[in-house]
């Protein structure tokens, strides 16, 4: 027979019961994995309490499942992430530790942006020798204006499901965003017209969607394989590639190490562009509109 020391058990239970604080009513709490989705949520639910787990200076592949994030997810009504396995190294741990059933599955308060659009570069087969690649396609989708609008539409619907009382306000906020976004796209495209056909060397496939949209071409990657830092042998190869003379610039994102890019750029006499990876990546990128504007301005200013 199992004998349990009841006195100890009762005192432990009492301790836990005492620690239950009173719940305070609050606005919808939104936990965003990346700042671009915090910014999108800000557009679509301006009254919500929005928290971004990462900044534009932090690589979203490599995030610690740290206590503050567990605490934030514990109180979240909605979690908005890129998906396509970008957060696979930390999000499952946060979900497990935060014990918040509301945001466990995409049937409820979990939203993956990549679920609602077609990602680029989906892979049939993945093995580890290819580096840190995602079978579900490139997850850095927020630099495609049309895909991001698709995500915005789906996120607005999700907000309505999670908090139907504010449905009218969410619909209005989406309509407002859609109108401004659709007006801005042709302006950006006109501004970026002379970037078409430009060839760049970039770090990772972080700006895959941006280059795809603007008709630019990433001819080489500073990483020898996705997720691996630039090696000297690989940089030497990139240098001989640069000597063909058709490279416009070397591009890195705000959270990436610039040293490899600087080494290459100095020897190949190329400009290095540090582009904000997300909202907050530089002063101009205070929202999604500012982010797009800033990235195009920086690209154009390279030469």
């Amino acid at each position: 027979m199992v004998r349990i020391n009841s006195k100890i058990m009762v005192s432990m239970m009492a301790f836990v019961a005492l620690m239950q604080p009173t719940l305070v009513f609050a606005e919808l709490n939104i936990f965003a994995c990346e700042p671009e989705y915090a910014a999108l949520a800000q557009e679509l639910a301006p009254n919500a309490n929005i928290y971004s787990a990462t900044t534009a200076q932090q690589d979203p592949h490599m995030v610690q499942a740290r206590p503050s994030l567990i605490a934030k997810m514990r109180r979240a009504d909605l979690v908005v992430c890129a998906g396509a396995e970008l957060e696979v190294g930390w999000l499952p741990m946060l979900q497990m530790k935060s014990a918040n059933a509301k945001v466990r599955s995409t049937d409820k308060g979990l939203f993956y942006a990549a679920d609602h659009i077609e990602t680029l570069d989906k892979l049939e087969n993945v093995d580890r020798s290819m580096g840190d690649v995602h079978a579900a396609g490139n997850p850095h989708i927020h630099f495609s204006p049309t895909k991001l609008l698709g995500v915005a539409n789906a996120l607005s619907e999700k907000l309505i499901t999670v908090n139907p009382e504010s449905a009218a306000a969410y619909r209005q906020a989406f309509a407002n965003f859609e109108q401004r976004w659709l007006a801005a796209i042709p302006e950006w495209e006109a501004l970026a017209a002379d970037l078409k056909g430009k060839r760049v060397i970039a770090y990772h496939s972080s700006f895959r969607y941006l280059f795809d949209w603007l008709g630019m071409e990433q001819v080489a990657d500073l990483e020898p394989k996705p997720g691996l830092p630039p090696s000297s042998g690989h940089l030497a190869k990139l240098l001989s590639r640069s000597n063909q003379g058709d490279i416009y610039a070397v591009v890195v994102a705000s959270y990436q190490d610039e040293r490899g890019a600087r080494w290459l750029a100095e020897r190949a006499d190329l400009p290095v562009l540090v582009l904000p990876m997300s909202v907050g990546g530089n002063e101009q990128s205070s929202d999604l509109f500012g982010l797009y504007q800033s990235v195009i301005d920086l690209l154009k200013a390279a030469r």
Binding site: I4, M9, M12, M13, F15, V16, M19, Q20, P21, L23, P67, S68, I70, A71, R74, R75, K97, S98, A99
Partner: peptide, 18 residues
């Protein structure tokens, strides 16, 4: 194990195990 995470801004968890 019974575990509890408090809805506080500061991360606070408690657990009892047998």
């Amino acid at each position: 194990r019974l575990n509890y995470v408090a809805p506080t801004d500061l991360y606070w968890t408690m657990g009892v195990e047998a």
